[in-house]
Computed example of a mutant assay.
Amino acid sequence: MTYSGQVTVGGPADVHELKDLMITKIAVGPMNNNAYLLRCRATDEQLLIDAANEAETLLGMVGGDGIASVVTTHQHGDHWQALAEVVAATGARTYAGREDADGIPVPTDVLVDDGDTIRVGRVELAARHLVGHTPGSIALVYDDPHGHPHVFTGDCLFPGGPGRTTRREEFNSLMDGLETKLFDVLPDETWIYPGHGNDTTIGTERPHLAEWRARGW
């Protein structure tokens, strides 16, 4: 079946099958958060992005093989409600942006900085530190050697605009980071997996950057 990225709370997961990586997307309540399970096809090692909520649902998706690691994209509570239970059940190593780790009430094993590499089996993800939605938000870039890049943006980029900010300087910082670290260096075909809602692409959003700047959100 063709991957659409359209999932609903209580509904089935959707699976994006790449040559080296399988990406399973599921939505959990009550904030309609997306969680992503990445599985290296060569080693079967797994990594979870955002143990947002519904630990039983997430552990069911993980299955008997367990997970090696959990990455929390940022410190907002709707992205880590199930983290403690998932870590207790799996023994997974935890990752989070250095500037956000203190806001996550589960110890962070690995503090992530801009440009760091996070591995799942033989697959490498590059961390991009984006300041504005929170001080330590991170996006994860998988540069697929067999196709286009794939980026997990947390709450920093959605279809139709950047993530929520409360002050103009935060908005400007987030936009600067999105432009220099994502839009300026990634092709239009790049697939975007956000923390809530449907997926998008760099090419779909690129024509609207000036519009976002002008409106301020």
Rank of each mutant, 00 (worst) to 15 (best):
F183Y: 10
H133T: 14
V70S: 02
L174R: 10
L83R: 03
F158I: 11
Y36M: 07
I192P: 07
I138Q: 06
M175A: 14
T8L: 14
A51T: 03
D78T: 14
P149V: 02
E189H: 01
L140Y: 03
A51R: 03
P187V: 04
G60Q: 11
V120R: 00
R119S: 09
N53C: 10
R41Q: 03
M175E: 11
A84Q: 13
I49R: 00
T190S: 06
T2V: 08
G216T: 11
T180F: 06
R122I: 05
A96L: 05
L125H: 00
D44E: 08
L209A: 12
L83P: 04
L186G: 03
V151G: 02
A13C: 08
D102M: 10
H79M: 13
A82D: 08
E54T: 05
D176S: 15
E169S: 15
T94Q: 05
L140S: 03
V120H: 00
A88K: 12
G115H: 00
Y95K: 02
P105M: 08
P135K: 10
A52Q: 02
W212D: 13
A42K: 07
A139M: 11
P187I: 04
R128C: 05
K19H: 05
K25E: 07
K181L: 11
D116S: 01
V123H: 00
G121S: 02
V62H: 01
V141M: 03
V141D: 04
T190C: 10
D143R: 10
L111C: 02
E45H: 01
P135N: 11
P159Y: 07
S4M: 03
A51V: 04
N32D: 15
D116G: 02
A126C: 08
G103Q: 06
L130W: 04
T108L: 05
T57E: 13
D20N: 09
M175Q: 12
W217I: 14
W191S: 09
